[in-house]
């Protein structure tokens, strides 16, 4: 179990740095989604299935979609033909 937690944790830290430093915004949002997804597995290991379900459905799913819609609306070509 400890090895799995260390593996997931290092994955989360790498993905968090990627989310902050990647130039491509869509890629950064997907990296943040990976942080949430790995966090939900850690919650399952920590005997918190309720929280794991919430994090998987909201943190990894809906939150990513909300960010992507926001990025779509803040691009040059979208607004010029407005």
């Amino acid at each position: 179990m400890t090895a799995l937690v260390i593996l997931l944790g290092s994955g989360m830290i790498v993905a968090a740095f990627a989310a902050i430093y990647l130039k491509n915004l869509i890629a950064a949002v997907v990296a943040a989604g990976i942080v949430s997804l790995f966090a939900s597995v850690v919650y399952l290991i920590l005997a918190a299935p309720d929280v794991a379900m919430t994090e998987a459905a909201i943190g990894a799913g809906l939150s990513t979609a909300i960010f992507i819609y926001a990025i779509k609306h803040t691009r040059e070509e979208e607004v010029e033909n407005d």
């Binding site: 989310a19 915004l25 950064a28 942080v35 966090a39 919650y43 918190a48 929280v51 943190g59 960010f67």
Partner: peptide, 21 residues
């Protein structure tokens, strides 16, 4: 970039939730 700032807040939030659990 403001979207990156919101992403950073979301990551800090995930970290805090992990600590509490």
């Amino acid at each position: 970039n403001m979207i990156k700032m919101v992403l950073s807040i979301a990551i800090a939030e995930t970290g805090l939730q992990l600590i509490i659990i």
